[in-house]
Each structure stands twice: as structure tokens, then as C-alpha cells.
């Protein structure tokens, strides 16, 4: 395979796997492509309560199919995306949203990783600041040490071949 064709093949594979993974069957789909696109986008953000780690767009569970149908009915009735999410949250709680909302109860969840990063940066900074202090300038040699050094250097000079 030539190098030029590889990206195209990978893209085709990615598209193919994406198309088979969605559980939405053709007869569920809305005739209006714009509404159907919104339904698919919403479905990917909503948790299937039965399988819990799949979106309703991905899941084959009966409840996920029912929820997909409700999403499409509400879209046809003219509801906004936010109104549809609210409708489901009123019944199933925030858990139905795969992306947890930012509110006081979830602040730690959202900010936590950054706190850990900040703590790590703090540790690295403290460590680096200490390093130069550890590598202090060597103190002056005292007279005895100077004499020993002189002797060693003199011996070195004698042993070196001329």
C-alpha cells in the first residue's frame, strides 16, 4: 500500500466503524436531516440507564430505544435541546447526562484534576528552588588541604611523560 493511500483507508475504516456502532435503526430516524442530526448529537450526550456506560445512541437496550424515541418526539414537537435534557434529568437525575453539569456538588469533580496538576507543579517548583542551594560553592581550602593538593599536583606533573 502506498503511503498516500493510508490516511484515506484509515478514514474509511473509522467512518465504517462509526456507522455500525450506533444502535439507531433506520426506521427510528427523522425525515428532516437537521432534526435527525440534533437527535443523534443529543443521543450521544445521554446515558443509557441500563448499560450505564453507553450513550442511548450506542445502546441496543429497550429503554435506550424508548429514550431515543422520546428525544425525537420532543424535537418534532419543537423542544430545544436544553428542554429535552431537562425533561430527562427531571426523571433520571443528572446521571442521565454523560457530561456532568458544573454546579456546587460537582465542582471538585471538574476542578480536581487541575488542583492535582497545581499541587504537582508546586512540588516541582519547590524541588527546583532547593537544587541551587544544595549545589553550594565549595568553601576555600584550608592550608593543610592546599598542601595536600599541591603535593598531588606535583606528583601528577612528575609522572606525566614529557
Amino acid at each position: 500500500m502506498s503511503r498516500g493511500r493510508l490516511p484515506a483507508v484509515l478514514l474509511a475504516l473509522a467512518l465504517a466503524s462509526g456507522a455500525t456502532r450506533a444502535a439507531t435503526s433506520p426506521e427510528e430516524m427523522l425525515a428532516d436531516p437537521a432534526l435527525e442530526a440534533r437527535a443523534r448529537a443529543l443521543g450521544k450526550e445521554l446515558r443509557c440507564l441500563v448499560c450505564q456506560n453507553q450513550s442511548i445512541d450506542d445502546s441496543d437496550a429497550a429503554l435506550a430505544r424508548d429514550l431515543r424515541r422520546i428525544v425525537r418526539e420532543r424535537l418534532l414537537a419543537g423542544d430545544s435541546d436544553a428542554a429535552i435534557e431537562r425533561y430527562l434529568v427531571e426523571r433520571y437525575g443528572d446521571f442521565v447526562l454523560l457530561r456532568p453539569p458544573v454546579k456546587p456538588a460537582t465542582w471538585l469533580l471538574w476542578v480536581g484534576p487541575f488542583l492535582v496538576l497545581l499541587a504537582g507543579a508546586g512540588l516541582v517548583f519547590a524541588f527546583l528552588r532547593r537544587r541551587p542551594a544544595a549545589a553550594v560553592e565549595p568553601a576555600e581550602l584550608d592550608p593543610t588541604e592546599k598542601k595536600v593538593l599541591e603535593a598531588l599536583l606535583a606528583e601528577e606533573r612528575r609522572n606525566r611523560p614529557a
Partner: peptide
């Protein structure tokens, strides 16, 4: 039979 009321109750199984 449609499961709609059950969804209103937040039932998932």
C-alpha cells in the same frame, strides 16, 4: 404497554 408512564417514574428496570 409503551413504557411511557414507567419512564415518567424514572424507572430503568
Amino acid at each position: 404497554r409503551e413504557g411511557r408512564t414507567t419512564i415518567d417514574w424514572g424507572v430503568y428496570g
